[in-house]
Simulated assay, not measured.
Amino acid sequence: MKIALFPGSFDPVTKAHVDILRRAIPLFDKVVIGIGLNSTKAAFLNIERRKEMLEAVFSDDSKVEVATYEGLTVEFCKKIGAAYMIRGIRTVSDFEYEKAIAQMNHALVPEIESIFIVSKPGYSSISSTIVRDIMRNNGDVRQFLPKEAFDLL
């Protein structure tokens, strides 16, 4: 069984995340969306709300599972039996950052392969960081979030 992990903070999940996932799902037997707990980042939404949003967005797909984890992402891959890690690339700087992470992950656990999926041009400017900033300032984020996620804010 080909299992992939799509890790991230998903704070909040955006249409760009959904696009990457929808394009990745047909490539695997199972895709686990892993919401990583990052002690160095102050979360905007609590972990339960983020999980609830992702489960609502992907409720129609039996190949998708949502889980939370703490610690090294490659260790979580091993725990769930994922041999692949999906990463979305929006910009050249994303690629440089993700390449470095993928190389470090490969050094730690060579059996786990990173798969980069380039975002569609219309989604390349959408980031959770920017969306959070808009939300903090009471801006309208509907155009950046899947309806199911927006309904849970």
Rank of each mutant, 00 (worst) to 15 (best):
T91M: 05
S127Q: 08
D94F: 01
F10S: 00
I35W: 00
K51E: 10
P12G: 04
Y123R: 05
Y97K: 10
V66D: 02
D60G: 08
P26H: 04
R22P: 01
I3K: 14
E48P: 00
I130Y: 13
I20L: 13
Q143W: 03
A4E: 02
A43E: 14
S119D: 13
K79F: 09
V109M: 12
S127V: 04
Y84Q: 10
F144N: 03
I3N: 08
A67F: 10
A16C: 02
Y69T: 06
N38L: 00
S114Y: 04
V66G: 01
F116T: 04
V57Y: 00
N137Y: 15
V18Y: 07
P146K: 06
F76N: 04
I47F: 12
M53N: 05
R22I: 03
I117F: 04
T68N: 11
F6P: 00
P12W: 05
A102K: 09
F150Y: 13
L152R: 07
A102G: 12
I80E: 11
Q103M: 15
H106I: 05
S127E: 04
I101Y: 02
K147F: 07
K79T: 13
T68Q: 10
H17A: 06
P12R: 10
S9V: 04
T129H: 09
L5V: 15
V31T: 03
M53C: 04
K78F: 03
P121N: 15
I35Q: 07
I130M: 14
P146V: 07
R49V: 11
I130N: 13
N137F: 13
N137W: 14
E96N: 13
E98F: 10
I89C: 09
S128N: 05
G88S: 13
S9G: 08
E98A: 10
E96Y: 07
A16R: 01
N46G: 05
F44Y: 07
G139W: 07
F10K: 06
F95N: 12
